[in-house]
């Protein structure tokens, strides 16, 4: 699902912000207008501003983390579960084992060391995760769709995610906002977010604060400080609240002071294109 113009909910609005036409208030640019996918990556990268260390999942999180390093978080230490600490790749790696992650790292450690010494004690500021399913408390499924023993779809599984979600000081989740992902009930709980609500993480002995922000191609969700249920707090340019509600498998709450996400700046888009071209 690439690009914003091929299906209904991401169609351009009347203000032209998703149109292929140049915006009236912007200088004419040769590149296409930013897609919903680009907006998601940029919004995710901004969430790393001011963070010192980030444990990075592969895919969308890795692209966003490297964009952050090129824009709002130049000194951020990116840590990959392959054991590379302080990776500075020029291009987002295809896999967490790409040679560029090790060659550009401050140090490379064994699997036992990365999980036991670096992740488990809670040294890392942010864990950056994706998911195949997410529920209203930001619990995540990356294991199976359907019954565990007779799955409809066998997904890759846990990898580093359960302990990233448990032990980082905070976690940020990057997912596309679709009904298949935003479900009322997970088929399997692979990684715990806010469990069944207030106090769940404390009862389970999880020491990190858990998911603080969910970034999608439509907007941003954050847990309500009281109920821990996800609330839509930001909507991206060109996206509509009703789309977010319609694509969520539970009655989605919308913040009374819902904000509009700042569109990507030229500098952010240039940095993103440099990473992906």
């Amino acid at each position: 699902m690439k690009g914003s113009n091929s299906h209904g909910p991401d169609r351009p609005r009347s203000d032209g912000s998703w149109s292929d036409e140049p915006r009236l208030d912007a200088p004419e640019r040769a590149e296409p207008a930013p897609s919903a996918e680009d907006m998601m990556t940029v919004a995710a990268s901004r969430a790393l501003a001011g963070r010192r260390t980030c444990f990075v999942g592969i895919g969308l999180p890795s692209l966003a983390a490297n964009l952050a390093r090129a824009t709002c978080a130049p000194g951020i230490v990116l840590i990959y579960e392959s054991g590379t600490i302080g990776s500075k790749p020029d291009r987002p790696p295809l896999s967490i084992g790409d040679g560029s992650l090790a060659e550009t790292a401050d140090t490379v450690v064994s699997s036992a060391e990365i999980f036991n010494y670096w992740l488990q004690p809670g040294r890392i500021d942010v864990g950056f995760l994706g998911a195949a399913q997410l529920d209203r408390f930001a619990n995540l499924n990356t294991t199976v769709i359907g019954d565990y023993r007779r799955p409809k779809v066998r997904l890759p599984g846990a990898g580093g995610a359960p302990e990233i979600a448990a032990s980082c000081k905070e976690t940020i989740v990057v997912v596309r906002h679709t009904p298949r992902i935003f479900v009322d009930r997970l088929d399997f709980t692979t990684s715990v977010g806010h469990g069944d609500g207030p106090g769940a993480r404390e009862r389970l002995g999880l020491r990190g604060a858990g998911p603080v922000r969910i970034i999608t191609d439509l907007g941003v969700l954050e847990p309500d400080p009281g109920t821990r249920e996800l609330v839509l707090v930001n909507v991206h340019p060109g996206a509509r609240v009703e789309d977010a509600v319609a694509r969520t498998g539970w009655p989605l709450r919308v913040a009374p002071d819902l904000a509009a996400t700042e569109p990507p700046t030229a500098a952010e888009l240039d940095a993103l294109r440099a990473l992906t071209s």
């Binding site: 359960p162 302990e163 709980t189 389970l204 999880l206």
Partner: peptide, 22 residues
């Protein structure tokens, strides 16, 4: 689990899995 095996121990201990279906 590998660390325990390499160390000649029957099991290893970690902070993990709490609250998951694993």
């Amino acid at each position: 689990r590998y660390v325990a095996g390499a160390s000649g121990l029957p099991f290893a201990v970690l902070r993990g899995y709490a609250g998951t279906d694993l």
